[in-house]
C-alpha cells in the first residue's frame, strides 16, 4: 500500500519535472501567438540551440579548467540565453516581420522553413550524432524502504523545479509590473490600438521573441543535462509537445502555458507508468485534439466569440 503511494509519487515527480520544462518552452509559443497570432514552428529549434550552446560552454569552461559549479552553470545559462535570443530576434526580423499583416498561411510556412534551416544548420555544424551532456548536479534524496520501492528525488530535478519557478515568477512580475510588460499586454490585446497610442509595436514584438527564446534556452540546458544527451533532432519533438501544452492551457495565456506544460508532463508520465510506454506520445496529441474539439480556447483561455 505504502509502496503504491511511493510509486505514484515518483511518477508524479517525474511528470512534474519534465512538465515544468515543457512549460518554459510553451511560454514562448503562447507569447508569440498572443501578440501576432502566429505559430512559431521554429521555436523548438531555439530550445535545441540553447542546449547545444550550454554544452559547448560547459565543455569550453572545463577545458579552461574552470570547474566551480555555480560559476559554470550561470555562465552556461547566460550564454545560452544570449545566443538563443539572438536567433529569436533575427528570426523575427528576417522571416516574419516582412509577412506580417498578410495571409495567415505565409508566416506559418516561413516558420517551417526557418525550422528546417536551423535544424540543418546545427546538424551540419555539429554532426548528427547524439552527444553526451555531463551531469554536473549529482546526488538525490531517497524515501522509502531500500528493500522495497525507493522513491528518488534527485538534486537535478530540484534544480529544474527551482529554476523554472524562478523564471515563471520573474516573467509574471515583469508582465504585470514593468512598463515593457504593460506594453506587451497592450499589444496582445489590440495591436492597432497600441500602435495608435504610441507604443512601438515592432520593438514589443521583437521583445516577445527574445523573452520566449531565452526561456526556451533555459529549458534546453536543464533538460539536456537531465536527460543526458542532445542531438539536432530533439528540438522538433519537444517543440511539438510544448506547443501542445500551450494550446492545452489556452494559447495566448501565459499562466495557461505553465499549467498546460505541467498537465502534459504529468499525463505523459502516468500514461507510461500505468498504461504502456509505447503510447506516451499519442497521449499528448490525443489530449490536444480533445481539448481543441471541446474547449478550443484551452483550459485557461477565453472563449473566442465569433463575430459576424
Amino acid at each position: 500500500m505504502h509502496e503504491q503511494m511511493l510509486y505514484f509519487l515518483q511518477q508524479l515527480l517525474n511528470g512534474l519535472t519534465v512538465g515544468s520544462a515543457y512549460a518554459l518552452i510553451a511560454i514562448g509559443y503562447t507569447m508569440v501567438y498572443g501578440i501576432i497570432g502566429m505559430i512559431n514552428f521554429a521555436h523548438g529549434e531555439i530550445y535545441m540551440i540553447g542546449a547545444y550552446i550550454a554544452l559547448i560552454t560547459i565543455t569550453g569552461l572545463a577545458t579552461l579548467n574552470i570547474t566551480f559549479l555555480p560559476v559554470v552553470l550561470v555562465i552556461a545559462l547566460v550564454l545560452a540565453m544570449i545566443v538563443s535570443s539572438a536567433f529569436g530576434w533575427s528570426m523575427e526580423r528576417v522571416a516574419y516581420r516582412p509577412l506580417r499583416g498578410g495571409n495567415r498561411l505565409n508566416p506559418l510556412i516561413s516558420a517551417i522553413g526557418v525550422s528546417y534551416f536551423l535544424k540543418n544548420y546545427v546538424l551540419l555544424a555539429q554532426g548528427s550524432r547524439d552527444i553526451g551532456f555531463p551531469l554536473l548536479i549529482k546526488g538525490s534524496w531517497t524515501f522509502g524502504d531500500p528493500n522495497g520501492f525507493e522513491a528518488n528525488f534527485s538534486y537535478m530535478q530540484l534544480t529544474i523545479f527551482i529554476v523554472t519557478i524562478v523564471c515563471m515568477v520573474a516573467l509574471t512580475l515583469f508582465i504585470s509590473k514593468s512598463r515593457l510588460g504593460r506594453a506587451c499586454r497592450a499589444v496582445a490585446q489590440d495591436l492597432k490600438m497600441a500602435n495608435l497610442l504610441g507604443i512601438d509595436t515592432h520593438k514589443i514584438i521583437a521583445a516577445t521573441f527574445v523573452i520566449g527564446s531565452a526561456l526556451a534556452a533555459v529549458a534546453g540546458m536543464l533538460l539536456g543535462m537531465y536527460y543526458g544527451s542532445i542531438d539536432p533532432e530533439f528540438g522538433f519533438i519537444a517543440g511539438l509537445k510544448a506547443f501542445t501544452a500551450a494550446v492545452l492551457g489556452g494559447i495566448g495565456s501565459i499562466p495557461g502555458a505553465m499549467l498546460g506544460g505541467i498537465v502534459l508532463g504529468v499525463a505523459e508520465s502516468f500514461t507510461s507508468a500505468y498504461l504502456s510506454t509505447d503510447y506516451k506520445d499519442v497521449v499528448s496529441f490525443l489530449l490536444l485534439i480533445l481539448i481543441l474539439l471541446f474547449r478550443p480556447s484551452g483550459l485557461l483561455g477565453k472563449p473566442e466569440v465569433e463575430k459576424i
Binding site: N14, F149, E150, L223, Y227, I237, S269
Partner: peptide, 22 residues
C-alpha cells in the same frame, strides 16, 4: 518485456517501473 522508441530521451517512467518490479 518493454518497448521504447528510438530517439527517446526520457526514460524516467521506464526506470521507475523497473524499480517497482524489483
Amino acid at each position: 518485456y518493454e518497448g521504447i522508441n528510438a530517439g527517446q530521451k526520457d526514460f524516467s517512467s521506464l526506470i521507475t517501473k523497473l524499480k517497482q518490479a524489483k
